[in-house]
Design a protein around this nucleic acid. Structure first.
Length: 261
DNA sequence: CGTATCCTGACC
DNA sequence: GGTCAGGATACG
C-alpha cells in the first residue's frame, strides 16, 4: 500500500492511538525483524513514553521521551492495525507495540519486508533523505542541481529518496503523466519551466500532505490513478493506448503520445 | 548505471 | 509453476 499519502494516513492512525502513551512492550514476531533489534534492547523500551510520531518521506519515527527513536518503514506492504492486547493477533502481524492502556498496535505486512530500527539518542535516523515534497525548499533550482549529476531517465530519478522523499512507483508515473513529461527523458537537461510543472504535479498527486500550506484549495480533488496499471487502455487526455515499460526493474506506465521527450 | 535480493501472496 | 507486486539496498 504505502506511498507518502498512505504512510501519512498510517502515521495519523498511530498518532491517535499512541501519541503521549506509554509502551508496555514491543515484540518482534518475524525473524527478519528480530534480527534487527536485539531482545535486550527491546526490553529497554518498557515504560517509555511515545512523545510524538513524525512522518518523513515514507518513514515513521516514534520519538520517545528519553530521546531515542523507534523507526518504522513499511516498504511495499506494511500497515498498522489498532486493537487490544486481549484480542487475537491480526493476520500477518510481524511486530506489536503494546501500550500500558491495553492498546495493541500491530505492524501487519503480508510480504514481511517492513523494517524497524531503534536509534540511540543523538543519531540521525534519516541521514541522506531528500527534501519533503511539502517543503518550500523543493524548488526548480534544487532539482536542476540534483538532476545535473544524473545521466539516466527522469522516472527512476524520481524514485531516488535521496533527492525527493516520498515519491513511489505509482505516483512517479502519475506525476509525469500530469506534467506531460516522458518517463524516458534524461533528468539532466529538463528545463526550469518543466521542472516547476513537475514539482506542482508531484505535490498534486501526493495529496494534501505534500502540498504547500495555503495552496491547492481543493484538497479533496480527486487524485484517482490516471495511468498506473492501465496498459493498453486509452489515455484519459488523448485516448492513445497507455504503454508499459520497465525502468530500473520497475513498471512505468505512460502515454506515448502526449508525454513528450 | 542495471540486477539480485529480502519475503509472501495473488493471479495467470 | 511462473510472474508480478505501491521499496530500498548491496553489488557488479
Amino acid at each position: 500500500m504505502p506511498e507518502l499519502p498512505e504512510v501519512e494516513r498510517a502515521a495519523r492512525t498511530l498518532r491517535k492511538a499512541a501519541a503521549g502513551r506509554v509502551i508496555e512492550r514491543i515484540a518482534l514476531i518475524h525473524p527478519a525483524l528480530k534480527r534487527r533489534v536485539s531482545a535486550h534492547r527491546l526490553r529497554t523500551l518498557r515504560g517509555t513514553r511515545i512523545a510524538a510520531i513524525v512522518r518523513r518521506g515514507k518513514h515513521q519515527l516514534l520519538e520517545l521521551d528519553d530521546g531515542r527513536v523507534f523507526h518504522v518503514h513499511f516498504r511495499m506492504a506494511g500497515d498498522w492495525d489498532v486493537g487490544r492486547t486481549d484480542e487475537p493477533l491480526p493476520r500477518h502481524a510481524r511486530a506489536t507495540i503494546d501500550l500500558t492502556d491495553g492498546t495493541r498496535i500491530s505492524l501487519v505486512d503480508p510480504r514481511a519486508l517492513s523494517t524497524v530500527e531503534l536509534h540511540a539518542v543523538g543519531d540521525n535516523p534519516l541521514d541522506g533523505l531528500g527534501v519533503e515534497p511539502a517543503d518550500a525548499s523543493l524548488t526548480p533550482a534544487l532539482l536542476i542541481q540534483a538532476f545535473a549529476r544524473r545521466r539516466g531517465p527522469i522516472k527512476p530519478v524520481l524514485l531516488d529518496q535521496h533527492i525527493i522523499a516520498g515519491i513511489g512507483n505509482i505516483y512517479a508515473s502519475e506525476a509525469l503523466w500530469r506534467a506531460k513529461i516522458s518517463p524516458a527523458v534524461p533528468a539532466a537537461g529538463l528545463s526550469r519551466r518543466r521542472i516547476q510543472e513537475l514539482i506542482d504535479e508531484i505535490r498534486h498527486v501526493l495529496g494534501p500532505a505534500a502540498r504547500l500550506p495555503g495552496r491547492y484549495k481543493d484538497a479533496r480533488e480527486s487524485t484517482r490513478i490516471a495511468v498506473y496499471g492501465r496498459e493498453g487502455k486509452p489515455c484519459r487526455r488523448c485516448a492513445t493506448p497507455i504503454e508499459r515499460i520497465v525502468q530500473a526493474g520497475r513498471s512505468t506506465y505512460y502515454c506515448p503520445s502526449c508525454q513528450r521527450r
